[in-house]
Design a protein around this nucleic acid. Structure first.
Lengths: 253, 253
DNA sequence: TGTTGACATTGACGTTACGTAAAGGTGTAA
DNA sequence: TTACACCTTTACGTAACGTCAATGTCAACA
């Protein structure tokens, strides 16, 4: 089946302007242009648009969607499974928000009391608690109380956008790292780019940056098996590779 | 409890810039300004912010949120009940999207087949708030030309199936209306059935429904000769009859 | 066959809801 | 008093389109 802009727009529930914009930014180009200059979309484009809309629904920026779907290592099925997980998380959040509104109604009718904190539950993701639970102790032990406090304070002040940025940075690191690992050279451009991205990630998480801490964290990735497992899950040896790249990047050992 | 921008921002999971912006556009002004020029928020502001975020979560524009929460007739509890309904609808949509992604995974593994149309189920949101029309500028000032334009724009993005449903509804309304007109009683069962069908038709066309808009549209059928001509083409007086039936149905005048 | 009307095209400027940076004042703990 | 995390206003930047405007294409109908 072939589609013109309007037909595809109707099918997907989006405007023709949106399709033209997606062409313009290179995120979804038509299969071909006919003799009159019309955009003609085919089966592949329909499927890609579906992927794009899944990402969009999850709040990913078009910039990031572009990087994801145009990446040579993009795995459609894997992406769908990620969508599934994210959507289930979103459902949990939505249910929290529904509980919130139910509680607020009960409160306004005088049946229960509610703290100010409760009034905003379900609006923001609970990434903080998870992070604290998972890695809090270790960071606290190795890097001291202060760093953790700062880290927490920063996290709390983050907006939804920041979280998204952080997540996209995360995926970018993963991708760059995967590519870099194939070259086998931590000092190469890709390896150094991964280190650079990782620096950005740290800066966002901690609200500040220092080479010492960066190098230290890199070593921890190798020393702590949970971190190692995380980085090695696709390719064993990745954690060591990242450490080496960072040590070269920071010029520290 | 009193809050500065940052404290309230952390509580609600939004940035300080957002709070300053909300002050700027007059949607949420602080309870007072202290001697140093700092914004200080109190209990009322916390509650209003919660309301604002509920509306924002449902995709209502700040412009409309402003009209809603600043309206003298604004009923907080009623709004919360509306949020509850909308959030449940949103949950239904989200569940449809989850089914979609599950089906897409099954398809990519070759277990089932999927039509192009199915691939986009759950994306289309018709979750525009009722109150948007209720307090929207267009409806209050002139429900004429602009409303019609908007309505037409919506048509363009409809699927074939929706369009067919709409047409069959249209004929049903015509038939019921013709029958009802013979009884001469807009409040009778046939008159009210016509009004009910008309409500369904509106809901489909606009993607949402409100009594006010319904009653307003009914009046427009009488005021605007193009609409009057359409309804009166078989039986003069039908437009007035329909308006009366709808005004009784909605309980509005 | 000419005209209509729904389609398509490429600019190009407008809009919303903030982000981000600059330049500076405030409060308190070391 | 020095540091630092707060706060302020002013102002320009941005993402993802919406919304014209000007113009070309195509099927259908009088």
């Amino acid at each position: 089946m072939e589609y013109t802009v309007q037909k595809l727009g109707r099918l997907a529930g989006i405007s023709t302007r949106t399709l033209r914009y997606y062409d313009e930014i290179g995120i979804l180009k038509p299969a071909r242009i006919n003799s009159s200059g019309y955009r003609i979309y085919g089966q592949q484009e329909v499927d890609r648009l579906q992927q794009i809309l899944f990402y969009r629904e999850l709040g990913v920026s078009l910039e990031n969607i572009k990087n994801i779907v145009l990446s040579p290592s993009f795995d459609g099925v894997e992406a769908l499974k990620q969508h599934h997980i994210k959507l289930l998380e979103k459902k949990v959040q939505l249910e929290a928000l529904i509980v919130n509104v139910e509680k607020t109604i009960a409160m306004s009718e005088g049946r229960i009391k509610m703290s100010d904190k409760e009034k905003f539950e379900g609006f923001k993701q609970k990434l903080i608690d998870e992070n604290e639970e998972k890695y809090g102790k270790e960071i606290r032990e190795k890097y001291g109380e202060e760093t953790v406090e700062k880290s927490n304070a920063y996290f709390k002040n983050m907006s939804r956008e920041d979280f998204e940025k952080l997540e996209s940075l995360s995926t970018q690191i993963q991708e760059t790292l995967a590519e870099a690992f194939k070259t086998g050279d931590p000092s190469g451009p890709l390896g150094q780019k991964a280190a650079e991205l990782h620096k950005q990630w740290i800066s966002m998480c901690w609200g500040h940056y220092s080479k010492e801490a960066h190098a230290g964290l890199a070593q921890m990735y190798v020393d702590d098996e949970r971190f190692t497992a995380y980085y090695d899950k696709e390719q064993p040896g990745t954690a060591v590779f990242l450490r080496d790249a960072i040590h070269i990047y920071t010029g520290m050992k």
